[in-house]
Write a protein that binds this DNA or RNA. Sequence first.
DNA 1: TCTGGGGTCCTAGGACCC
DNA 2: TCTGGGGTCCTAGGACCC
Length: 355
Amino acid sequence: MRRGIIASASYEARRYGVYTPMPTSRALRVCPHLIVIPGDYERFEQFSRFMFSYVYDFTPEVEIRGIDEGYFNLTGNRRVSPVEALETIRDAIRQSLKISVSQGLGTSKIVSQIASKIRKPNGLVVVQPGRERQFLYPLPVSKMPGIGPAVASKLNSAGITRLEQLARMPRDLLRLVLGKSADTFRDYSRGIDPRPIVTSEEPAKSYGHQDTFSSDTVDDDFVEAKLKALIDEAVNRMRRDGKSARTLSVTIRYSDMEETTRGVSLHEPGDLPDDFYGQGIALLKKAWDRRVRLRMIRVKLSNIYNSPPMPDLLTVEDRQRRAALQQVLTQVQSRYGPRALMRAHELFLRDTGQS
DNA sequence: TCTGGGGTCCTAGGACCC
DNA sequence: TCTGGGGTCCTAGGACCC
């Protein structure tokens, strides 16, 4: 199996010490009978839509964040209380999809989001109006979305470990520690969140693809081919949305995990792979300045503009397949004549489902 | 054979313009 | 002889989230 990590572990697997983002190889060592399921993002998305469809039975105000999280405004439903709605949704999802979900109910995004993560799996945590501070204050600062390991350790060094201390910290002092985001986090830890309960979906600001090689490599032809394939994928996805991009960046990760990024902005937005191939290869050469093997390459299109929707283009793989087929057909014709060629063509169409 | 893949947002310095 | 102060864009890197 490819090198990879555990993207998500069942609670059964967690009991054996399997967690995210553990390398799959190590997960199999700590739990040899582990069942590993390769990721299939398209299926997960279908599954996700199916899951969220149960929410729309109670409210049209739904904001989906990522594949498995969302905010719902349940204040407008006069038929059932928010708690009843959440319990019904949870039961329906468990019955139809055989999975458990965890939920949080509160007067703001921040409170409900934190509440939803307190009791997992299959939990419902309700924070009554007016009880926000009682709920938030005892929690460690790391429970606050947006406070990861780096910010948490900065706060801890300043003597701030719980949300109550964050809430009570003088504004000016906190700005020294957190910079521009100080006021937002301070308000959040007091349960103050001015954001609307749900916001509509925003257009994508970037399209990226990355690929970790099955083994580290110094083969620049191989890496350039990968780079082109990634540009193809990103461009095609962008074109489906009717967009074009002006900025291309290329990131490489060396075998020692060090990363370097180089980027460039074109004079005009482009929506063809050819608009980016040349720049992409130049950026790759610029970034790859150590003679060290590469483990990963990533491509990102940003500075997105609207352009008319366009059909997909041929990818590098498509062209390679076409070239291979042409070669085979040429051989068949020269060796066995035109009748054999026609037969080979029929077989090809049948095998590729085109007849 | 330790460490995936898809994103967003922020910071900071330099170029450039007025 | 002396070099301010905004604003915007670009690039590189880092933190964070799902």
